Amino acid sequence: MIFLNDFTRELIGTGIVLVFLISLRIISTKLVRRYAKSSHTIEHRTNLVIKYIHLLINILTVSALIIIWGVQTKDIFIALSSVTTIVGVAMVAQWSILSNITSGIILFFSFPFKIGDVIKIHDKDFPIEAEIQDIGAFHVYLRTHDGEMVIFPNNLLLQKGISIMKNHFDDKEFID
């Protein structure tokens, strides 16, 4: 009982933040799904973006709870600077992963092409003309006219010029 008397404000604040968390997650999920449905985005990509948004919301919720429960600001800054340093060193080594994830989110929302489109990537050293088989969080999977599977990183896809071609790959006859 003493705990309830001493921490009434913190418990009420925690309850409000948790209700806000649940509401924000439901609303953001519905908005992303509505956007995906209107732009005919595949379910896999939609779930990936929802996962990223939920991660951001959870981080903000933990920050709010830390503030509500009165953790000293200098303790928060010490912990954050330590974590940031470790993550920063790791991200310098893994910058391409973060770049590909960010590019995947940009491709999701800008949606310049879709699975089944034939694209031409304008690269002077390695030009590619292929059909998009799948768009993942890190890579786009392409199949050339010769049947070769090319896995192209999302961040390079945003850096290169791309033409969306009419599907001029010859339709293969179905032989039974």
Rank of each mutant, 00 (worst) to 15 (best):
I115L: 06
R33V: 10
F174N: 13
G70I: 02
H40P: 07
Q159S: 13
T144E: 13
K124F: 13
S103E: 05
V140R: 04
V17Y: 00
P127K: 09
L21E: 10
M165D: 10
A79V: 15
I53A: 03
E43P: 01
S28V: 00
I78K: 07
A36I: 01
N47G: 05
H139D: 15
S63F: 11
Y141E: 15
V62A: 13
E173W: 05
K166G: 02
S81T: 07
I50E: 08
G147D: 11
S110K: 14
M165Q: 13
F152Y: 15
L157C: 07
E131C: 12
E131R: 14
V150S: 11
K120E: 14
T102I: 08
I101R: 11
N154V: 02
S110W: 11
D6Y: 06
I135F: 10
K124I: 15
I16G: 01
T84N: 00
F126N: 13
I67H: 02
K166D: 03
I66F: 10
K124G: 04
H54F: 05
Q159R: 12
I175H: 08
S28N: 02
R34L: 05
I26Y: 01
H122W: 12
D117Y: 07
F77D: 13
N100P: 06
I67K: 01
Y35Q: 06
I121P: 13
I106C: 11
H168N: 10
G136M: 05
L142M: 13
I53S: 02
K124Y: 12
K114R: 15
T29E: 08
Y35M: 03
I42E: 07
S23N: 00
N58I: 07
N100Q: 02
K51T: 15
P153F: 02
K124A: 12
I135W: 00
H54G: 08
L21C: 11
V17I: 14
